[in-house]
Design a protein around this nucleic acid. Structure first.
Ligand SMILES: [Mn+2]
Ligand SMILES: [Mn+2]
Ligand SMILES: [Zn+2]
Ligand SMILES: [Zn+2]
Lengths: 151, 151
DNA sequence: TCGTAATTGCAACTTAGTCGCATTTAGAAT
DNA sequence: ATTCTAAATGCGACTAAGTTGCAATTACGA
């Protein structure tokens, strides 16, 4: 079996989604971490994998109406824990989630809330400025402004 | 009167705080923006001004027990609106607030939640990466790791 | 196929933050 | 100083994102 392209499940199910997902690298993560891919989890992952923009729990739920809210939140928390997905705060009413692939950041329009992804961002090493920390291994960086539509 | 050092109010009041505040620059903002400094607002501002670290609404409330929760939140929102204070998300249960003085960022310990401020951060201009925005005038940048106490 | 631990659905719950409205206050006019 | 009015406050009810306890279901290895 090719570990880069992995067929998780073929049969349809009561959740009404097509459960064929091919995602590079992800099966390796599954195995290394002893992770179990259930049908609801598969569905949630597929929605995020196929989305071109970050989604809220509510947006995910609306695409998967048969999966309970609690499951959605628990799954998102779980995926976030081992970094399969990222939970990002864009100063809205709720968090956004997206696949954790290439590191990037976001610009949010303060009027229409449109989100643009920016490919690259060069940051200084914060350890240079820190006296109290032994290591820093994560950061969040989001920009805010107005998009061209909203002038 | 020296506009750099401004005595807002001298008399004590039913809120039980000493209402003498001297804050550089702030009175100019008050005037320019037609801002009214009431006693609750004064008290909240003083707490933030004197704090060496960002505070949550709840922490501010606990220092000013006679001021209602709704007033605390409304005031914080109001101060935030015209940038007298900043509302920052450090991935906790609630937002933090701090005076908007010298631009800086934070490092948060994922275990004990201690917050270190870092004086300076050089960021690339995000407009270089943007296709959809006409301007970007704000960003949030916070770092996460482990402090020396928590190894 | 069975057994067991993990996961799900459901409904109740939590809690940071908001809102409507009556009361109080600030500050300007008289 | 007194009166006036708009703005701000206090209060309690409310909202909504997210969480939790628990019984039913599912995954998966023996
Ligand atoms: Mn993104
Ligand atoms: Mn700070
Ligand atoms: Zn816009
Ligand atoms: Zn720590």
């Amino acid at each position: 079996m090719n570990t880069d392209e992995f067929e998780i499940s073929k049969k349809n199910n009561k959740f009404g989604y097509s459960s064929l997902i091919r995602m590079q690298g992800i099966p390796i993560l599954f195995k290394n971490l002893g992770y179990t891919l259930t049908k609801p989890r598969e569905a949630i992952l597929k929605v995020l994998y196929e989305s071109k923009k970050p989604l809220t729990a509510e947006q995910i739920k609306s695409k998967l109406s048969k999966i309970d809210k609690a499951t959605i939140y628990r799954t998102l928390e779980y995926f976030t824990e081992f970094r399969l997905i990222l939970k990002i705060d864009l100063r809205g009413d709720s968090f956004f989630y997206e696949m954790n692939d290439a590191h990037h950041h976001h610009i949010v329009c303060r009027k229409c809330r449109i989100i643009e992804e920016i490919e690259y961002c060069e940051l200084p090493n914060p350890m240079i400025y820190s006296k109290k920390f032994s290591f820093i291994n994560e950061h969040s960086l989001e920009f805010y402004g107005k998009c061209k539509n909203c002038v």
